[in-house]
C-alpha cells in the first residue's frame, strides 16, 4: 500500500502518468480514500490549467516595437 508521501511524489513528478496500469490503479485507489492527497492532486492539476489559461500580457505596442527591433537586426546582416 502506497503512503501519502509516495503518492504526492508520484503526482507531482508525473510518475503516475507514465507508470503501469496496476501502479496507476493503486494511486487512484489511494486518492479515492485519502482526502488530503486528493486535495493535493486537484491543486497540482489546477496549477497546470491556470498556466494554460493565463496568457502573458503582451500589449500590441510592445509587439510592434519588438518586431521593428528584430527586422532592423536582421537587415543589418546582409
Amino acid at each position: 500500500m502506497l503512503n501519502c508521501s509516495q503518492v504526492a511524489r508520484s503526482i507531482a513528478s508525473d510518475e503516475y502518468r507514465t507508470g503501469g496500469l496496476l501502479y496507476r490503479m493503486s494511486i487512484r485507489l489511494h486518492l479515492a480514500m485519502c482526502r488530503q492527497c486528493s486535495r493535493y492532486f486537484r491543486q497540482i492539476r489546477a496549477l497546470g490549467s491556470v498556466l494554460r489559461e493565463v496568457g502573458d500580457e503582451f500589449p500590441i505596442s510592445q509587439a510592434l516595437a519588438a518586431r521593428d527591433r528584430l527586422l532592423a537586426r536582421l537587415s543589418r546582416k546582409p
Partner: peptide
C-alpha cells in the same frame, strides 16, 4: 510535510479560493 510513516503531518492548505481568484494570473507570474 510527512511523518515517519509517510502520512501528511502538514496537509495541503485549501488554496482553491486563490486558484480561482481574479488575481491568480498575477500571483502565478
Amino acid at each position: 510535510k510527512f511523518d515517519a510513516h509517510g502520512s501528511w503531518r502538514q496537509p495541503p492548505a485549501d488554496i482553491e479560493g486563490q486558484l480561482h481568484a481574479k488575481e491568480i494570473g498575477q500571483i502565478i507570474q
